[in-house]
Design a binder for these strands. Structure first.
Length: 434
RNA sequence: GGAGAGGUGGCAGAGUGGUCGAUUGCACCUGACUUGAAAUCAGGCGAGCCGCAAGGCUCCGGGGGUUCGAAUCCCUCCCUCUCCGCCA
């Protein structure tokens, strides 16, 4: 159930106390990101809200006391009747003050929603993706240069294996059919990713593909990216753009046992993205789709351990590419290119030998307490008050671009693609060609 | 989709207009007793916000209303259960 909080409990994304007591820290952090926000306006709204709250609480306190006295009075007595008359105006005033508090809280909350998470100290400065830092590379890209290399959409049998035209007829652009061996290969990849995640300690969940507005808000898709999600309007549900949304919301408004941390979960789901306005010239074939498959890794961890957990999460994602023998590089995303809710983010990019391009197949991020605050996910320390957990997630991995890299990197002169050894257990043979 | 019954603290479950943020049981924590444990006894035990503090305020599925006063009455939405209908 969506709990948008009553009086006195307005969930915000950034810790309001952090903002109040360390404005400069937040100001510097936000300045490193690409988002613009008027922190002074947020602070002013916070002041206004607290002032209104104090005034309301004083009036309410008096009203409560008077009501307690009345409870002891005989109902019909003259004293009682006089008191009722007296309290009428006081009651009206309390109502008015309460309304003012609600307005002030709504204004403050709206302002606070615009404040992004602050980037971690280890995040490099920069304005655009050109400033992202390559922190490691794996595999031999040069070895993939060959005369027969070509983009996957130019492989003669590709149009039969991944049928975009039939997809257009049945649904629209970006909803292809995978046919025969290609469908098998998709299934093999899903199996492989899930098995690997399970072996790395992630508990598998099979999640809802439609979520309500409260869930989409908690993980940050709403209100920011409303236009990027498909919306089932009759029931007001959103098609998930990533398993991150349902999987992270599993624990929404819950307090976890500290002994259970870190909680690690994985889930395979199709993902649906409208990708409005982002269709460019080099978006062809499997590079960008409206519906695609992905296995997502999600962690809920103690705040003190979240940045170490980010490193191991990234390692879990990297291992998949290594086992598939696909060359890749790891980017540490710069402050200016990092997401709104993110504190630190690594992207994994696989080398597609035919297109001779790097394709993003995973994004591994630490959201610190940003999502947890919005989603109300806490843990109870040994002896103490509940604290927000830190949440992390990463793709492990997104399918279509991995598929593209497999096709392009393993294509022989004979037009046959050799399927990575790691997939044979589920794929059943060692080549694909239709 | 229709009819009916419900939604209260970690769980169970009282409470139908005022001293109820809420009886009680279980679970849990502390202490006593015990060699230790169990049993028993005593005490404690929801969350959030404002405040230097004292203290105050809010929360009984969500939202709105009636009232001096709402867990309790009204409206609305969501959800759960039972029966009927439909259906992979």
């Amino acid at each position: 159930m969506p709990s948008d909080g009553g009086l006195g409990q307005s969930p915000s994304m950034l810790d309001p106390k952090l903002l109040r007591e360390n404005v400069d820290l937040v100001r510097q952090g936000v300045a490193r990101k690409k988002f613009q926000v008027d922190l002074d306006a947020v602070l002013a709204a916070d002041d206004a809200r607290r002032a209104a709250l104090a005034e309301f609480e004083t009036a309410r306190s008096a009203q409560n006391a008077a009501n307690k006295e009345m409870a002891a009075l005989p109902k019909g007595s003259a004293e009682f009747v006089a008191k009722v008359a007296e309290m009428k105006s006081a009651s009206a005033r309390v109502k008015e003050l309460e309304k003012r508090v609600q307005d002030a809280e709504a204004a403050w909350h709206a302002a606070a929603l615009a404040v992004p998470n602050v980037p971690h100290d280890s995040v490099p400065p920069g304005r655009t993706e050109a400033d992202n830092r390559v922190v490691s590379e794996w595999g031999d890209v040069a070895a993939l240069v060959s005369a027969s290399a070509r983009p996957h959409w130019d492989i003669p049998w590709f149009a039969r294996a991944v049928d975009f035209e039939r997809g257009v007829k049945v649904t629209g652009a970006g909803f292809p059919f995978y046919v025969g061996d290609m469908a098998r290969l998709v299934r093999a990849l899903v199996q492989f990713f899930l098995e690997e995640a399970g072996a790395a300690g992630y508990q598998e969940v099979h999640a809802p593909l439609l979520v309500n507005a409260a869930s989409a808000t908690a993980t940050g898709q709403l209100p920011d990216k409303e236009g990027q999600m498909y919306h089932a309007q009759t029931d007001d549900f959103y098609l998930i753009p990533t398993a991150e949304v349902p999987v992270t919301n599993f624990f929404r408004d819950e307090i976890l046992d500290e002994s259970a941390l870190p909680v690690k979960r994985c889930g395979y789901t199709p993902c649906f993205r409208r990708e409005a306005g982002s269709w460019g010239a080099h978006v062809r074939g499997l590079n960008r789709l409206h519906q695609f498959d992905k296995v997502e890794l999600v962690k809920w961890v103690r705040p003190s351990e979240s940045f170490d957990e980010l490193e191991s999460l990234r390692g879990d994602a990297e291992r998949l590419l290594q086992k598939l023998n696909l060359p890749y590089r790891v980017l540490l995303i710069c402050a200016g290119d990092i997401g709104f809710a993110h504190s630190k983010q690594y992207d994994l990019e696989v080398w597609a030998g035919g297109q001779k391009r790097w394709l993003e197949v995973s994004s591994c991020s630490n959201f610190t307490d940003f999502q947890a605050r919005r989603a109300g996910i806490r843990f109870r320390p040994k002896d103490g008050k509940p604290e927000h957990v830190h949440t992390l997630n990463g793709s492990g991995l997104g399918l279509p671009r991995v598929l593209a890299a497999i096709l392009e990197n393993n294509l022989g002169p004979d037009g046959v693609v050799r399927v990575p050894e790691a997939l044979r257990r589920w794929y059943g043979k060692d080549t694909i060609a239709l």
